[in-house]
Design a protein around this nucleic acid. Structure first.
Lengths: 136, 136
DNA sequence: CGGGATCCATTCTGATACTG
DNA sequence: CAGTATCAGAATGGATCCCG
């Protein structure tokens, strides 16, 4: 019953249908657009392993600016993926850890990361082919 | 042997280790950073279902500009995820379709989209909690 | 119809300096 | 140590005009 008329993959139930991909009312976009930043994945990947402190994360991702690290952490915290614990030591230290929600998100996300690791060569090859063919 | 000293999830083999997250030499970042754009996921989601023409995609994603649509399609094509076929009709039409590589990527990616659909409410709740608690 | 080229407004990023 | 504040440059997005 009405099988091929809709998208084959299940996303309609609570997700968003093609007909409602408009800006604000698509739950999937609302969630995805936050974790699809340049740094979000990296930070999530790090914290999925174990908690880290601010400075540690900074050293772990060498080319992130302190500004972007702060901002990314705030965003991830706001959406409930990571937790922020402040230790009133001297000097103060702040520890970031992944929440249950974060771990549950990371599970499917890891699959994508693994795909990326496994298929990087194919992507590179495709790029090479593309770049070569557009030179006259 | 040497189990917990490394990250628990498998990504080291051909992926990137924590120690080599530096800018250019991380394959995972190289792949992820391209599909994590604001529009890439949407276009992939559309083309995963069936091929579409330029104008159709535009109508499907109402709030994308023609400029960004062109650019996103080019990027996805360059990385080998989608195919571009030009029909020399009058007026001409161009059809975009997903390649085998694209479908293989979309498989794990879909899991993330489904997660987003299923957990949107949790994320919204977390946001509400966060926004409420930072008002003094 | 499916773009490319250009101009402009907005947003994002990174480097630097300063604070509790 | 863990940020905040500021500023400049890069990237992003929209609008308009043009072409095959």
């Amino acid at each position: 019953m009405a099988v091929a008329t809709k998208r084959s993959f299940m996303l309609d139930e609570q997700g968003c249908d093609v007909s409602e991909w408009d800006a604000g009312n698509c739950p999937v976009r609302d969630v995805i657009e936050r974790i699809s930043g340049k740094w979000s994945t990296l930070i999530l990947e790090a914290l999925a392993e174990k908690p880290y402190r601010f400075g540690e994360l900074r050293r772990l991702v060498p080319d992130i600016s302190q500004r972007m690290l702060t901002q990314t952490l705030r965003d991830l915290q706001r959406d409930g993926y990571i937790d922020r614990k402040v230790f009133p030591t001297k000097p103060p230290s702040v520890e970031y850890s992944m929440t249950a929600l974060g771990h549950s998100l990371f599970e499917p996300l890891l699959k994508v990361l693994q795909w990326a690791a496994a298929n990087h060569h194919s992507v590179k090859a495709a790029r090479a082919r593309y770049d070569e063919s557009d030179m006259a």
